[in-house]
């Protein structure tokens, strides 16, 4: 049974068809890459899956359960976590506080009891803080724990965001351009991190990214979107060399960083 199954999704804004009968699947333990030029509908797809947009047609199933009509926070509760293209964090607080905030559903007490300062809330709070510390350590972010989000550079925030989504305890991780703003070397390190995370947490990952080497490095399956339609899908190597994909999206020869990236991915998988 697939973890995520989005079938025939269609949505349009005014006259623009952002998604047109798009079908995407992700199986247990899979890493699925989604590529495509700007405006191809990749983020719109994420917004439909997480519930920010209501598709006009199509069904979304999560572990066999239809979630097409559920509000965003309920999908989070089921185990769908996501990051945002332009960093979705609470900017006026510290990194550690963000991770604690993201554990909203983990906090096992009533908000009213928390407000009145019930004794159990104190214990629970320190448990959340500890868990936040662990996650930060795992992603090698302990040194920025007490830094204010607004003061950190973009590349670090992208990683903080991943740590924050992990704090919501997802089974399915939707990453919107996790490698943006990173150089080839950093992107490669990110790929290793993602593969490590899958191992550690046993999660399924769907990832949008422009870094073709990164996508090729980690993905088991790749979809290429263009003008709201699935242009090609298949194994990374197949999609990358698909003539239409090359024409629509790559438009250039595969660059040099590809080869070592592939080698690295074989080591892990």
């Amino acid at each position: 049974m697939s973890v995520l199954e989005a079938r025939n999704l269609s949505i349009h804004f005014g006259g623009v068809r952002a998604l047109d009968h798009v079908t995407v699947q992700a199986g247990e333990w899979e890493i699925v890459g989604i590529i495509g030029p700007n405006g191809a509908g990749k983020t719109t797809l994420f917004n439909c899956i997480t519930g920010f947009y209501q598709p006009s047609k199509g069904k979304i199933r999560y572990r066999g359960k239809s979630i097409t009509r559920l509000p965003v926070h309920k999908r989070t509760a089921l185990g769908i976590g996501r990051t945002f293209q332009n960093v979705g964090l609470v900017k006026n607080t510290t990194v550690a506080e963000n991770l604690v905030t993201a554990q909203h559903l983990e906090a096992n007490y009533d908000p009213w009891a928390g407000m009145l300062g019930g004794p159990s809330t104190f214990a629970e709070e320190s448990r959340l803080a500890e868990r936040a510390d662990q996650l930060l350590e795992l992603l090698d972010l302990s040194d920025v724990a007490s830094a204010r989000v607004a003061d950190l550079p973009y590349g670090v925030l992208k990683r903080v965001e991943i740590a924050t989504v992990l704090a919501t305890d997802p089974d399915l991780l939707l990453l919107d351009e996790p490698g943006s703003g990173m150089g080839p070397e950093e992107a490669h390190a990110l790929g290793d991190t993602l593969l490590g995370l899958r191992k550690e947490f046993g999660i399924t990952i769907v990832m949008i990214d422009h870094h073709v080497p990164l996508v090729t490095q980690v993905s088991d399956y790749v979809y290429c979107l263009n003008f709201g339609e699935v242009l090609a899908e298949g194994k990374p190597g197949v999609v990358r060399n698909h003539p239409e994909v090359v024409r629509a999206y790559l438009g250039e020869e595969p660059d040099e960083t590809d080869a070592p990236a592939e080698a690295a991915s074989e080591e892990y998988v």
Partner: peptide
Amino acid sequence: RVASSYGIN
């Protein structure tokens, strides 16, 4: 949006 993606109603 971020809040609701954290599971906050």
